[in-house]
Design a protein around this nucleic acid. Sequence first.
DNA 1: TAGATTGTTAATCGATTAACAATC
DNA 2: TAGATTGTTAATCGATTAACAATC
Lengths: 234, 234
Amino acid sequence: MIEIGEVTVPAATVARLPFYLRALRDLLSDGVTTTSSSGLAERSGVGSAQLRKDLSYLGSFGTRGVGYDVETLASSISAALGLGSEHRLAIVGVGNLGNALANYSGYAARGFRLVALIDADPDVVGRSAAGLEVEHSDRLEEILAARGVSMVILATPGAAAQAVAERIVACGVREILSFSPVALQLPDDVVVRSVDVAGELQILAFHAAARHAQSGDAVGVDGDPAVAGVQPSA
Amino acid sequence: MIEIGEVTVPAATVARLPFYLRALRDLLSDGVTTTSSSGLAERSGVGSAQLRKDLSYLGSFGTRGVGYDVETLASSISAALGLGSEHRLAIVGVGNLGNALANYSGYAARGFRLVALIDADPDVVGRSAAGLEVEHSDRLEEILAARGVSMVILATPGAAAQAVAERIVACGVREILSFSPVALQLPDDVVVRSVDVAGELQILAFHAAARHAQSGDAVGVDGDPAVAGVQPSA
DNA sequence: TAGATTGTTAATCGATTAACAATC
DNA sequence: TAGATTGTTAATCGATTAACAATC
């Protein structure tokens, strides 16, 4: 659970808010002004009861008998997600993946501003991407402070991740999105979200193995949120 | 839950197996031959009770009073994940991100073999990455069949994702790792894992907002697996 | 034997789902 | 009013945690 003011929002709910927001924005750009919990739920890949329950943690945004105003609900969720204020973002580790993430064009539209690219490799330092020059990690502390970075995407090799993460945290950063496949050991007040591509593939491999064991042996799949044709964020 | 043979494995457990496997491989390369549930749990970023419970779904691999043989346990988890057989992988959508994923060097070591790169953009078709040439999506069906693809990484723009996913599923592929931020509507027997970078950043933004509301307003964080300094896969 | 550590049980906790009263 | 749809309650379900007997 995550408490905001007097309100407590389950972690699982928070993880679904971006889905609702995206579905609402899609509706908006289709010119749809009103939607129901079942319509929005279908677009988001969840059940309508779950959608209504999730929204109920944030407040009461709909009209009984009518549904939700798409624009109002989008603003409310966006506000709940703290997307009103700009979040200044640095990418640390500008290899293949870091570079691809730097070139992602959706940051601004979502309230994020990429303000620094940092790497330890002299061959990478000095290159530019997304209008920024890659700077040397020797100057990490200085750069994070000067640019007011509050969030970091960590895309270094696994071996470097822990040490770099500690330096980042020492600069006061408390939100990290890590692509390094290691369990970072950091203070409890630091929020780390991890994306592990190889791990995701292994989970898929497990499902494939279960499927094969099933036909011929006796296997089935049951109640796994990751197993439905559609499902929210890992 | 996911049933394998007579055994049922909770989805949450499956999602942690890759962490244990990685930690075990790290131990192996450090020359460590034996570990305890608490030692391995710490490396994996989970509690020791959870680790033992997770392993108990797969079987009994340790020795009371002693611990686990690192190599044996790694093999057992690897087998459970179905990494014994090779999984043939295609990347559909070879933009920034798809290209970065193509250049990822860890597939082979993890039992995956990248056998095709497919894109719809004539400017991208014909380029090469990771020793493969990007082929046109007009020939998607033909390519997936000819190469025996069983798993696909989908990294197309959101607008194309649903249609392309349907074609992929029509080819018999049942495991998809999607980087497109849309809720794919696919048959229930298709397993979709989704990675949404912008969504992850939004979740971090929510935590940042909660933190700020906390100091000065009254907010706290409570029991969120994503909130601990270390935590498993999104 | 004494110490250590597993595997499992039972209790707790959190998340999901179904149903429905409130109400537009 | 009749129909529709929300917001919420209560029941179910699944996951985590703590504790401990089994046993090396």
